[in-house]
């Protein structure tokens, strides 16, 4: 059984349906990329999984338990953690307090000092800046805080929404290297990206979302080699 199983999920904003009978699964230890253009429904999908949005039908099972009837704060308790698009840091709080706020659920709070040390080892720059307000950091550093804050919640599955958004190319490469390093430690990652080349090349599998439907799925390498992806998403 997959760690995360999304079955026949339909989501609408009022009268406008965004996701149509979506089926996606993520297995333990995998890195899965969800790629697609603007408006394909990628962020809506993540918001539905983390219960910020309600699906009109379908089921979302995580670790064998249904998630689609829970409020967002309880989804986190099960280890399903969503790092939102645009980072969404607590701007006036210090870097350290942002990270500690990530460890709010009881299980994560008990081991917060240990996790904090791991996050600081992964992002030494955050330790240097731990007392600075999050809003004073650069874009790349803010993304590190966002990922670190997600890790502080002790996730079983980390869902990242466009971590490369608005970053300089050199920082994008660094963020993707970090994501790969996190996955190599055994954490399951679901990566939603518009940067198709980078995200597929560090993933095991991928889905292509188009107009709210899963248009393609397969091993990440196969997708990278597919003529359709090369033409539509990579422009080669």
């Amino acid at each position: 059984m997959a760690l995360l199983d999304i079955e026949n999920v339909n989501v609408a904003y009022g009268d406008v349906q965004v996701l149509f009978d979506l089926n996606i699964s993520v297995h333990e230890g995998e890195v899965v990329s969800i790629i697609g253009g603007n408006g394909a429904g990628k962020s809506t999908m993540l918001k539905t999984i983390s219960a910020l949005m309600q699906s009109s039908s379908g089921s979302i099972m995580f670790d064998g338990k249904p998630m689609h009837n829970l409020p967002p704060e309880e989804v986190v308790n099960h280890g399903l953690v969503h790092v939102p698009e645009g980072r969404r840091l607590f701007s006036l709080m210090s870097v350290r307090d942002n990270l500690l706020a990530g460890a709010h659920n009881k299980k994560a709070y008990a081991v917060r000092e240990k996790t904090l040390e791991e996050v600081y080892t992964m992002f030494p720059r955050l330790e240097e800046r731990q007392d600075q307000a999050a809003m004073t950091l650069s874009g790349g550093e803010q993304q590190m805080v966002a990922i670190g804050r997600g890790l502080m919640a002790c996730p079983k599955l980390l869902m990242l929404d466009e971590p490369s958004l608005g970053l300089a190319p050199i920082l994008i490469a660094e963020i993707f290297r970090t994501i790969r390093a996190i996955a190599d430690k055994g954490l399951t990652v679901m990566l939603v990206e518009q940067d198709v080349k980078h995200s597929l090349s560090l993933s095991d599998r991928g889905y292509v979302l188009e107009h709210g439907r899963a248009a393609m799925e397969g091993a990440a390498n196969d997708l990278l080699d597919s003529p359709y992806i090369r033409e539509a998403y990579l422009g080669i």
């Binding site: 910020l52 967002p72 986190v76 969503h82 790092v83 969404r88 607590f90 701007s91 709080m93 706020a101």
Partner: peptide, 11 residues
């Protein structure tokens, strides 16, 4: 500061 982001952190 951000009630939606807070709820994603389990708050």
């Amino acid at each position: 500061l951000d009630r939606e982001a807070a709820s994603l952190m389990g708050i």
